[in-house]
Amino acid sequence: MTQKPRVALFVTCLVDLHRPSVGFAAVKLIEEAGAEVFVPAAQTCCGQPAYNSGDRKDAIAIARQVIATFEDAPYVVAPSGSCAGMIRHHYPALFAGDPAWKARADRLAAKTYELVSFLTDVMGVERVAAALPARATYHDSCSGLRELGIKEQPRKLLATVDGLDLVELPGAETCCGFGGTFCVKYPEVSVEMVQRKADDVAATGADLLLAGDLGCLLNMAGKLSRDGRAIAVRHVAEVLAGVTDTPAMGKD
């Protein structure tokens, strides 16, 4: 009998703090795909807030810690295109002038995946065993889309969710205005951007909004909630794993 692939879950700081159910949904999906999951205890954040704020020194320090924590894992999977993109694309760039660490960063980058693309592209998952009667629409988070090329994978799996009707979101590839610290540095601009997104979402007539990144989801859920829209917001992993007995984001 061949051994199951072993996957280290990079929980991400937002899932850890805000919505653990996304983490458990990820674990369930990875296990159902035939892999084993472990969760290194010494993880915090990928360092993106520091990196994008220009605090390169701290970004490097945090990246070293993540590399040291995860480099022995056969695979590293994160339920976020943003964090996976940080490790895959930006860690090697951070260590451009440091050959020893660059090599370690490259090795980690090569085995790090965003959750849904890991399921489809590495584990060959073609369908999920979930059911959810809903009219859903999907927002493509920027990092996942443009850094990792995640576009068809979530749609392909969502199409296999029993009872789920997926409608395309016009402007699905347009940024929601979250942008990490951007949303609090330039709140008025950010709110304007997410207002447009919320209006686009509402115009689809969907009752469920999905995406693969908790940052964008918090932003969009917050706006839809403020506008009094009865649209549920969830991480795509929750729906794919069939774990939707929890309240949707911003609901009780």
Binding site: R19, P20, E36, V37, V39, P40, P187, L218
Partner: peptide
């Protein structure tokens, strides 16, 4: 900066890490 223009969805209340420890999940 966040809540002037949108709500902030409340978190579930416990962290993934503490729940994983409580379930004695693999480390």
């Amino acid at each position: 900066g966040w809540t002037d223009g949108r709500d902030f969805p409340a978190p579930e209340g416990r962290t993934f890490q503490e729940m994983w420890s409580a379930r004695r999940g693999a480390r």
